[in-house]
Design a protein around this nucleic acid. Structure first.
Lengths: 169, 169
DNA sequence: CTGATTTATTTTAAGCTTAAAACATTTTCG
DNA sequence: CGAAAATGTTTTAAGCTTAAAATAAATCAG
């Protein structure tokens, strides 16, 4: 999988030489650092200026994009969090009046979750600030750098998805 | 902060036109998706194959790099998690015999945390598998793509750090 | 030296998160 | 149809995480 093409006999291969992948590791740690730093700062600002947690913001962001509402399973898939996690999150936001739950007309197991008017208004205000913050945090990157990074992250997502579904290369 | 240089009068500026930054937002969401996907997969595999949580693995990884041990504050800064969080994490790993705590000789407030021999051995085994997994997850990226991504993430880290410390541009 | 500030850590309360098991309903198919 | 599998959700137990307040020790300033 890359590296040298010198002929290694089966013996050598079977010996399972360590095969270091330090560069990939460094790449992953840097990606994680960026993500953690930015997420932490956004979390801090959301709490400070709007007294809201990041998970609640994220949940409302998903619902804002779905005017007709979504089921818990849809939310779970989109947000990449466990089902059980959402049960509690939705419960708390329903109690605080930010969202509505109604049983699906076609499937009595499922609930359709949607933002209330108040919830939507509150989210829109937060979203505007959030967008500004993100632009500020990425502010030093040129348009070209942003475009390149976007492409490389798309490739990364594809690569990871690939490695997760099936083939061990 | 980029965009056009057409002369906007103060009036127009004061009107605070929405100024959309959707591209930065998309970039951030993609970064977050990559990070979340990979982290989730690593978490899953660590649990499945080694019955260990990701936070514990991360803590041991820091300690493995510091043979003489580190204080909780050092760990807190390096891992970018709260101090209180570490208290519990360290407590659980000390109980399970993975690490040692001793009071600092020069500062009676501080503890020096270090891996036990057993802890180190266990970590090394996990780290080897971890490195392979990461290489696999990033496997579709060419060497050049990896290098480019590395550079752009360094720029991103710098940009975010910049925006966090002081100047609101 | 002593009071004020800083630094290191723990505690507390609340909420987030997961995996696994349990439960409820729908869909599939023999 | 009716059993089996699949899907949608909740519950449970454990652990993670944070912010804020509390405690303790070291350092600084006068």
């Amino acid at each position: 999988m890359s590296s040298q093409v010198l002929p290694l006999d089966a013996e050598t291969k079977a010996a399972e030489s360590p095969e270091h992948h330090r560069e990939e590791l460094r790449l992953w740690l840097r990606l994680l650092t960026c993500s953690t730093m930015i997420e932490g700062e956004i979390r801090r600002r959301l709490r400070e200026r709007f007294d809201v947690t990041l998970p609640r913001f994220d949940l409302m962001a998903q619902l804002d994009k779905a005017p007709d509402g979504m089921t818990l399973s849809d939310l779970s898939r989109r947000m990449m969090v466990s089902n059980g996690n959402l049960t509690g999150l939705v419960e708390r936001l329903a109690v605080s009046g930010h969202l509505d739950r109604r049983v699906s007309a076609t499937d009595r197991r499922a609930q359709i979750i949607s933002l209330t008017e108040a919830g939507r208004a509150e989210f829109r205000a937060m979203a505007a600030a959030h967008e500004t913050w993100i632009a500020e945090l990425f502010g030093d990157l040129s348009a070209k750098e942003q475009k390149d990074l976007m492409r490389l992250l798309a490739r990364t997502k594809f690569s990871a998805r690939n490695a997760m579904t099936g083939e061990t290369v």
